[in-house]
Design a protein around this nucleic acid. Structure first.
Lengths: 151, 151
DNA sequence: TTGGTTGCAAAATGTTTGCATGACC
DNA sequence: GGTCATGCAAACATTTTGCAACCAA
């Protein structure tokens, strides 16, 4: 269990994006790396699997994954989402611009969409809801992907 | 455990909307009634609670609630949704027009929105996804409601 | 009557927590 | 060295399943 210069530490984006005030542990660095290398949101099990596969001689606990993700979320660098097609939470690094996904109802694969439709969300709130403060929104598009639509 | 003319059976909307081919049991009728009397999606526990409170001398099983909801969903009269602010599934009767909700991030109350923004979802799919077949979408608006925004 | 439905209990799944050990700063 | 994070196991919440008894059609 080496604590020398860990490969993950060499990554410039980690140095730059690491939240202030939280310890840089081997586990958190690895989880961050897994997240940053994925183009779609991952479940805790996805992450755990990648950790153990990628580092067969290290040990990881599921609770560490959950706690690290929670910490990252509290720091504002990770977004937790529950899609309607899954029954568990998925996590992704927050990038500057938020994204939406098209999700296949059969294979559950997710496809990042081009940007975000300019929705006049204000307009949707009735006059009786003029005091609701909008901070964000989530949009998911459902359907069938290329591989599943023919079946 | 009377099986005479049950109050729920007298309700015209149930007679009219009941899916063909599934048995009309006391439990299913009561669950349908709970769903149809709510303006927001309900969890299985919500429904179970209302069943046992509303009918103290009847017995209900949690599994019956889940199985009935699954049956209703299969028949196409109930929609199951998992909102990102909760970690469990919510159920509602499908009305003709689909709805969206504004959800308070603090108290998790849901407010039905006025209709649906006309989103050009097709436009969001890149040219590489021209063979994705869109069947629906889900939109949630997040923020803080009147009672929570000041805190 | 008969197959579908229920209640109960137990299992499966995803997530959280308590606590002693261990690692970062 | 002191504090915070980890690993492990156990708790927890939600949902699913097996099975015998029961009920609607």
């Amino acid at each position: 269990m080496t604590t020398l210069i860990h490969p993950a530490c060499a990554d410039a984006s980690i140095e730059k994006n690491w939240p202030k005030g939280i310890k840089k542990t081997r586990q958190r660095l690895e989880i961050f790396k897994v997240l940053s290398s994925s183009s779609v949101p991952l479940s805790a099990s996805d992450i755990f699997r990648q950790l153990t596969i990628g580092n067969p001689n290290e040990t990881y606990a599921f609770s560490t994954v959950y706690r690290s993700l929670q910490t990252f979320e509290d720091c504002g660098i990770v977004a937790k989402t529950i899609f309607s097609t899954e029954d568990n939470a998925l996590y992704e690094l927050k990038s500057g611009k938020h994204r939406h996904f098209a999700i296949c109802l059969k294979c559950h694969k997710k496809f990042a969409l081009n940007g975000c439709p300019i929705i006049d969300t204000r307009h949707m709130l009735g006059s009786d809801m003029s005091d609701f403060v909008i901070t964000g929104h989530q949009l998911e598009i459902y359907g069938y992907c290329k591989d599943c639509k023919s079946e």
